[in-house]
Write a protein that binds this DNA or RNA. Structure first.
Lengths: 210, 210
DNA sequence: GTATTAAAGTGGTCTGACCACGTTTTCTCT
DNA sequence: AGAGAAAACGTGGTCAGACCACTTTAATAC
């Protein structure tokens, strides 16, 4: 049974490793796997999907570079909690973004942040906001960390993930779009807590640079 | 420079394929390669970097999944233009599977659409809007097609891509969130053209179904 | 010259072999 | 029997070599 799979594997041409990525997605979905869970070993996947181990590895390495999985030698491969990871270095390193793209990034980021703030205002109980204020006053942070926490507060985690990606992109574009003034952001938090929508927005906008 | 040392005192060398990704980056940078240019073949990279071809492939496949490069069988591997990166799609495709996130789909979609409309109002010349109105009155369409065109009108193509992903996932989640009448949307277009922001928003919201 | 054909180059995939490391089991000594 | 050491096993990491399918290029025939 050495060589004749080349002849048989011709129905769905597209690269095997992409196929495996998709199969993995379905597998994770159907089995209800969560971050931290272990996925089958490379050899087992290879056998189960009837493909070479090298193809399995191409798929896994791709997902690893994306930050979706994590591999530990001797242990196995695990689903990871998504985080920016190498996106910044990768994207920034490979391309210089043109002006138009950069503007899109900035605009989209601002939009997401505004939306998040408005959403928070409607959905977050004052206690939670108070907690956040406490944290803000007792820790050191910059804009990015601040908004990361803001997004974590919002139950719409899809929004959070989109922001993470957009933010990574924008960071890789080189220009830092604003400069944190702690007081300003604390004011913002208070306005949020008091549900003063107009103030939230104007304070946010005044924090933007350029 | 090399990163990825995670957090262990183990003197394990970083994975080769990551090293190759970095080397490739430098190579592209030093040689001044631009989108569309061809990069060395897998076999040549393998020899030049003194690593196995499979490791080279793991690196290349990773970059390919990200949309940073493109490979054409029999021809070679080429650098791609930044705009075509697949990150948004991929990240969406992967962990959108939990229930909670699913419930965020509708909210996020609405948000994106509102934002797109507001952006359009500020940036689109009346002629373009008139064109759109003409099209809307002389063709058949549903909500999805309508908003697809709306997003295409907006020069922020990043926003468009995000919407496409969110929309497609909301569709697959089963519940169709609206079914408005043609007239309503034509009204919306006129309000857009006349830059009546308040009306745009209220008309949009009245078109939503539960 | 053009058309056909052969060769070379390139990505796509598989197999089997090691290595390095972590976990589990087994063995040994007390 | 229990604790600690050693071996076995499982897993990712890497490599070399072999084909296949496809494209480009060079050689050949007309």
């Amino acid at each position: 049974m050495n060589d004749n799979r080349a002849a048989s594997a011709k129905s769905t041409q597209p690269k095997i490793y992409l196929d495996i990525v998709e199969k993995l997605r379905l597998m994770i979905q159907d089995d209800g796997l969560l971050p931290g869970d272990k996925i089958p070993s490379e050899r087992e996947l290879s056998e189960r999907l009837q493909v070479g181990r090298s193809s399995v590895r191409e798929a896994l390495r791709s997902l690893e570079l994306l930050g979706l999985i994590e591999t530990r030698r001797g242990e196995g491969t695990f689903i990871k909690v998504f985080q920016e990871h190498r996106l910044v270095e990768l994207l920034g390193a490979f391309f210089l973004l043109d002006e138009k793209t950069r503007n899109n990034l900035r605009e989209t980021k601002i939009l997401l942040e505004q939306a998040c703030l408005q959403g928070l205002m409607q959905k977050t109980p004052p206690e939670k906001m108070e907690e956040m204020i406490q944290w803000a006053e007792s820790h050191d942070w910059d804009d990015e960390i601040f908004f990361k926490k803001i997004f974590q507060l919002n139950p719409n985690h899809l929004l959070e993930r989109i922001w993470i990606v957009v933010n990574s992109y924008e960071k890789s574009s080189g220009k830092t779009s604003r400069m944190a003034q702690k007081k300003l952001y604390v004011d913002l938090l208070h306005a949020l807590k008091n549900k003063q929508g107009q103030d939230v927005n104007s304070i946010y906008l005044s924090g933007l640079r350029k």
